[in-house]
């Protein structure tokens, strides 16, 4: 009987550990998008590849940059409670291995924080957090974005 209990405990722990590891390691806003009250948008790589027209918007070539992206996730919280929950989720993402603070900007009443995950000269993810204390906008862009493409956004 003890053997059965032991084996069952091992299996259950293994399942939970696998799920926990899988969840813990993924840089995604999927969990945040499930927070009640938030507005969320997920654009997949397939959709990004459909953006065919080359347009320059504000000096930024959307099609060009989109070709380097795997996904774009936007989560917006317009309520204090869900903003608090979203802030906690985002905070977890910013502490994931490889995620580093790129810049912090104070813009009027908004606190803007940008995190990045790099592999060599390539950005695997850029996390933008715009927080005005009440509303919270979180954008996660993943892909293989060269450093110069990020620099182009500042021109």
């Amino acid at each position: 009987m003890k053997t059965i209990y032991r084996n069952l405990i091992i299996i259950v722990v293994a399942i939970f550990a696998t799920n926990f590891t899988a969840n813990a390691q993924s840089l995604s806003l999927e969990k945040a998008s499930n927070i009640k009250g938030v507005t969320s948008v997920y654009i997949s790589k397939m959709m990004l590849s459909q953006i065919g027209e080359s347009k320059l918007v504000g000096g930024v070539n959307i099609e060009d940059i989109a070709s380097y992206l795997n996904s774009v996730e936007i989560v917006i919280a317009e309520d204090k409670n869900c903003a608090k929950e979203l802030r906690q989720e985002t905070n977890k993402l910013s502490k994931l291995p490889g995620v580093e603070l790129l810049t912090k900007i104070k813009d009027d009443d908004e606190n803007v924080t940008i995190y990045g995950k790099m592999k060599g000269n390539i950005y695997e993810a850029v996390l933008l957090i715009v927080d005005d204390g009440e509303d919270l906008i979180v954008i996660l862009i993943t892909g293989n974005i060269p450093l110069d493409k990020i620099a182009e956004l500042t021109k």
Binding site: V57, V60, I62
Partner: peptide, 20 residues
């Protein structure tokens, strides 16, 4: 919609980077 949302996301990122 995908185009508009991507554009919004990139423009917001661009504007915030420019703010710095």
């Amino acid at each position: 919609v995908a185009y508009q949302e991507t554009e919004k996301a990139l423009m917001l990122l661009s504007s915030k980077l420019n703010k710095s």
